[in-house]
């Protein structure tokens, strides 16, 4: 024990000396002396939250002259956090960690939103969100994507604008799967209901379901994206592979890309070009930092970072393409009608 304390003190001292050294030698940054306010659009303890906190810790090392201030603001698929980041003013540099649900929310509730995603600066993407569809082991037959729809599978979500709710609607409209989406369940409740047999299916990050999959309670049957999944899911069919021939290729591609990029780092609209540049440089340094990568690995996370240019291009292409947005909206509306039992299928040819 004493040895361990001494060792930790030693490590701390070495880190402190290294940081002091870093302070003397690091290149001047537009963020020197500034306070960076980090808003995490997820509740504390969530996978993205843990990942974001590890990132923020590493960021402190790369920006020794900058004060980093982390807070959680979860709710409505990241829109609360995006709204706060959008409203940020003054000398504070405000960045956020959000997932791809902010894109869906923008598309479905665009007019009601007090912000537009195009106004933000996209610093990069941390990792894939590893989105999967899982079912309880005893409903696997009904959930076989190759079979015709039988009784709809009950699937739970936080709210009608949550990421997994929209994912479920897209599955309804683009595949043979039939999901009855029910909102109002926190993530923990969703898992508890799945284990209890009160729900049939769940959509979310692989990390959320990993324990239950490993224990044999849940079976993954579909993955939304193509990267960031563990080896054991390599053979799992993707959304593109099981989509109906009539499904829009644009919408499938969009859902796949959103899962692959997954967890975005975004800066407030008022961020100056110099600060933005410094944030991008710091992001690139952090995602290549061996210490950060080791910490991610220790926590069972798979890093698949994307740079600012790629994410910005993706966002601009998507949000500027009204035809794709219209197809996505149509698919979501169709999925809702199927979920409500109003129709069995829709004609989405556009």
């Amino acid at each position: 024990m004493i040895w361990k304390i001494c060792r930790n003190l030693g490590v701390t001292s070495v880190l402190a000396i290294a940081m002091l050294h870093g302070q003397q030698s690091h290149a001047a940054s537009a963020l020197d002396g500034a306070t960076v306010r980090v808003i995490i659009a997820h509740k504390a303890g969530n996978t993205t939250d843990t990942m974001a906190r590890l990132f923020a810790k590493a960021l402190e090392k790369h920006l020794p002259e900058t004060s980093i201030n982390v807070q959680n603001l979860d709710g409505n698929g990241g829109t609360l956090a995006m709204n706060e980041i959008h409203a940020a003013q003054g000398s504070l540099v405000t960045i956020g960690f959000v997932n791809s649900s902010v894109v869906f929310t923008q598309v479905t509730q665009g007019e009601a939103m007090p912000y537009g995603l195009k106004e933000f600066h996209w610093i990069g993407a941390l990792a894939s969100s590893q989105r999967v569809l899982v079912v309880r082991k005893d409903v696997i037959d009904r959930a076989d994507p190759a079979k015709l729809p039988g009784k709809p599978l009950v699937s739970l979500a936080m709210s009608a604008s949550a990421h997994n709710y929209i994912d479920g609607l897209l599955l309804n409209s683009m595949t043979n799967l039939r999901l009855k989406m029910v909102p109002g369940f926190k993530t923990d409740q969703q898992n508890a209901m799945l284990l209890a047999g009160d729900a049939d299916a769940g959509i979310g990050t692989y990390e959320n379901y990993r324990e239950f999959i490993e224990a044999g309670d849940l079976v993954p049957i579909l993955k939304f994206g193509t990267v960031g999944y563990p080896d054991e899911l390599k053979t799992l069919p993707t959304l593109a592979e099981i989509a109906l021939p009539t499904a829009s290729g644009d919408v499938i591609s969009l859902a796949t890309q959103l899962s692959d990029m997954g967890r975005f780092v975004v800066a407030a609209p008022h961020t100056t070009p110099a600060q933005r540049e410094a944030l991008v440089v710091a992001f690139n340094e952090v995602v290549a930092d061996p210490g950060y990568l080791r910490a991610l690995k220790d926590a069972n996370f798979i890093a698949t970072p994307e740079d600012s240019a790629k994410v910005t291009r993706f966002m601009n292409d998507l949000l500027g393409n009204h035809a794709v947005v219209a197809k996505l909206r149509a698919a979501i509306e169709c999925g809702q009608q199927i979920s409500d039992g109003v129709v069995q299928s829709c004609d989405l040819a556009m």
């Binding site: 303890g45 284990l195 220790d298």
Partner: peptide, 30 residues
């Protein structure tokens, strides 16, 4: 009970507890 046996946090502070345990290297669950 649900937090440590099933990995389902029973309260908001238990959700942080789960993440803290994971970062400390302790795996919870069945």
């Amino acid at each position: 009970i649900p937090t440590l046996f099933f990995g389902i946090p029973g309260s908001s502070s238990m959700a942080i507890m789960m993440a803290a345990l994971a970062l400390a290297g302790v795996a919870v669950g069945p």
